[in-house]
């Protein structure tokens, strides 16, 4: 464990907690894409399949449970909680995300480190996570302005993988033959997808005006 990875995990945890808090307290999911939340639930479900078979540490297992629990409860709130579901913007959240799932699955079957069930699904989860934010970013461009909790959620979510990149650089230089091209490339693509969001988020913060 290094400071970059810990910072990354904390940033990631705060992002899901910010969103869960927003939905739970003000009973609103305005501006939030349920498709991105569903993709993230699939990402965690397919990445943490080994949660019971391979024990890494208490921290690792605890965080896996936090991410699984939060992503599935956010989807549950947005799909089945009456008050929250009413604030869901169905007309605008129209990204065909099942195509993302299918193409990532095909890609994982083609490009992976080892052709085993767990490894292919783990690779699939990396590909899917890289593009999971797309429905949310598309929805963002359609809704005029977004409330700052949703903005903070996206900012933290985009930042966590950027911190992971620093963690991979650190591990590359400190651990012999720590090389994982698939993880690195997907992590880089994922972070780059947030580039223009970060730009506008920074502008709104600098000029102290609403993000739109």
């Amino acid at each position: 464990m290094n400071i970059f990875r810990l910072a990354g995990d904390m940033t990631h945890m705060f992002s899901v907690l910010v969103l869960l808090l927003k939905i739970h307290t003000i009973k609103s999911c305005a501006g939030v894409s349920v498709k991105t939340q569903e993709l993230y639930a699939i990402v965690f479900a397919t990445r943490y399949l080994d949660i019971f078979t391979s024990f890494v540490s208490i921290y690792n297992t605890f965080m896996k449970l936090v991410f699984l629990g939060s992503s599935f409860s956010i989807v549950w709130y947005m799909r089945y909680h009456k008050a929250v579901h009413r604030t869901y913007d169905r007309e605008q959240d129209t990204f065909r995300h099942w195509f993302l799932v299918l193409s990532c699955l095909l890609l994982a079957l083609l490009i992976h480190e080892k052709f085993t069930f767990l490894e292919v699904l783990w690779t699939f989860s990396l590909y899917l996570e890289a593009v999971a934010i797309l429905p949310q970013l598309v929805l963002l461009q359609r809704t005029r302005n977004i409330d700052n909790l949703t903005g903070q959620y996206i900012f933290l979510l985009g930042g966590y993988r950027g911190l992971y990149i620093l963690n991979w650089i650190y591990r590359y230089f400190t651990e012999p033959h720590f090389v994982h091209w698939i993880t690195w490339i997907t992590g880089l693509v994922q972070t780059l997808l947030y580039a223009d969001f970060f730009y506008y988020y920074f502008l709104s913060w600098k000029n102290n005006k609403k993000l739109n």
């Binding site: 995990d9 080994d50 896996k64 080892k114 767990l118 720590f178 994982h180």
Partner: peptide, 10 residues
């Protein structure tokens, strides 16, 4: 082995 090594991240 490799698998356990890189599956130590979230």
């Amino acid at each position: 082995d490799i698998a356990s090594q890189h599956h130590d991240e979230l």
